[in-house]
Design a protein around this nucleic acid. Structure first.
Length: 439
RNA sequence: GCCGCUAUCGUCUAGGGGUCAGGACGCCAGAUUCUCAGUCUGGACACCGGGGUUCGAAUCCCCGUAGCGGUACCA
């Protein structure tokens, strides 16, 4: 049975590096019909608390990574918290002590590193060899009788019958120590696969100053979990083909350890944005409304009322929103008129003395026009501009400012149709009035 | 310092003795046009350096260099 595990420390949140490691483990387990175990490595009593775990669980759940054994679901190898397995580690340390493979030192127990070389075959890097000379007699049980990482991780991986250890590159130099421990216990080490780290744009280790590092922050920024999943899966791993937009199932079908690249990968936000946009485009109107609504924007109450109308509004916005949060902003004009007018826009398009009269004429025309369609509204505006020897563009931009207060928006006439005559005429009047107050 | 890992466009990557070194994101230009976005078309951009091996090396070997990781009674 193929069994993998993700074993985070309870830091309170799941950062993108850990998320990707979890993802790779999950992908491999699912690919081979195996089991994915979640284990909490909280032997560092300093800062370990049960509540700290929920952030990690939430992050995994958001990404759609489920676990077969671990916190909340239990399993045959429970408990899945190292802090609850202390006796096991103490017994293991004693076993090594009794068999002469460890010795006491200052109250702690250290492993007696034998001479020779320690090797293992890494699925990502190939054979790796360490000379035991360079491995110090490391502590396995601290003087306070708590195990160190090396002891607990090996005990647990043995107990939980882990067959593949997929973890960060930073563990490569820990591996020989652990292989030595497996040998000392008379067990065969699992297959190791050390995946390269994720770096910031400056190629430095990802940290707060790179912006969001926790996966849940990405949710707040308006990213879709499925986009994040796809993006993360392809960060440091190549499918070998040119396809990049892949569903979870497709990713599962193609995943393999050999395709993981050996070098560090830079987290590229622009590409994440692209993935997100692609996934946003795939959502049905209903799904999109639900997601936008979930963000607390002009949600269900605004959009849910009139599906046909919402659908048309969304069609206008989809090409311009790469993140869910952008809908919040772009949707505003469809629900409320401008509270202020972009000064640059006013200066650029409405500073001419005749601007007001043009807009007033347009307002009258729009009150009078019978056919409230995109084509008719555009024809009406252009003919009016022509008759008044004004540039259509000037009128268009001025009207855009009247409707949105901004210089940028979806196509004007498409918007006017959706806004409806009443709001259009009203907003035109409001701008005209505002203009009267200007010098 | 010592030990280890890595090295293909700016970024993620494909390719692993003979390829026009492929794709994607981003970028630039043109088209569409009422702005922005989108879309379409076109374009620029890479095998870290030096030695070998070979008829031939980005690909194999060695040496440099650089980046990253580890070097704890952290994980």
């Amino acid at each position: 049975m193929t069994r993998l595990r993700f074993a985070p420390s309870p830091t309170g949140y799941l950062h993108v590096g850990g998320a990707r490691t979890a993802l790779f483990n999950w992908l491999y387990a699912r690919r081979h019909g195996g089991v994915f175990v979640l284990r909490i490595e909280d032997t560092d009593v300093e800062r370990s608390q049960a509540e700290m775990v929920t952030g990690i669980l939430d992050g995994l759940r958001w990404l759609g990574i489920d676990w077969d054994e671990g916190p909340e679901v239990g399993g045959p190898h429970a408990p899945y918290y190292q802090s609850q397995r202390l006796e096991r580690y103490r017994a293991a340390a004693k076993q090594l002590l009794d068999s002469g493979q460890a010795f006491e030192d200052g109250g702690a127990i250290r492993f007696k590193v034998p001479p020779g070389k320690t090797t293992f075959v890494d699925s990502v890097h190939g054979p790796i060899e360490f000379d035991n000379e360079h491995i110090e007699s490391f502590v396995i049980l601290r003087s306070d009788t708590h195990p160190t990482y090396h002891l607990s991780v090996v005990c647990d991986d043995i107990d939980m019958a882990i067959t593949h250890v997929v973890r960060g590159d930073d563990h490569i130099s820990n591996t020989p120590k652990q292989v030595l421990l497996y040998n000392a216990f008379g067990k065969t080490p699992p297959t190791f696969a050390h995946v390269p780290l994720i770096m910031g744009a400056d190629k430095q280790r990802l940290s707060k100053r790179h912006g969001a590092t926790s996966v849940m922050e990405y949710e707040k920024l308006g990213y879709l979990p499925e986009a994040m999943f796809n993006f993360l899966a392809l960060l440091g791993w190549g499918t070998g083909s040119n396809d990049e937009l892949l569903t979870k199932d497709e990713l599962v079908q193609r995943f393999n350890l050999e395709g993981i690249s050996g070098g560090n990968a830079v987290f590229n936000t622009e590409k994440l944005d692209w993935f997100n946009h692609q996934y946003l485009l795939k959502l049905t109107d209903e799904e999109l409304v639900a997601r936008v609504g979930g963000l607390g924007a002009w949600g269900l109450e605004g959009l849910g009322k009139d599906p046909a109308w919402s659908s048309r509004v969304l069609a206008l916005l989809r090409p311009r929103c790469k993140r869910l949060t952008e809908y919040r902003d772009q949707l505003t004009p469809f629900f409320e008129g401008p509270t202020s007018y972009d000064p640059d826009g006013v200066k650029k398009h409405l500073s001419a003395p005749e601007a007001r009269e043009h807009l007033e004429a347009l307002r009258q025309a729009y009150i009078a026009t019978g056919d409230w369609t995109e084509v008719a509204l555009e024809k009406c505006l252009r003919e009016l501009a022509e008759a008044r020897s004004a540039k259509a563009a000037t009128l268009i931009h001025g009207t855009r400012i009247a409707m949105t207060g901004r210089m940028v928006s979806p196509g004007l006439f498409e918007m006017l149709v959706l806004l409806g005559r009443e709001r259009v005429v009203d907003r035109l009047a409001r701008l005209i009035a505002a203009l009267a107050g200007l010098p």
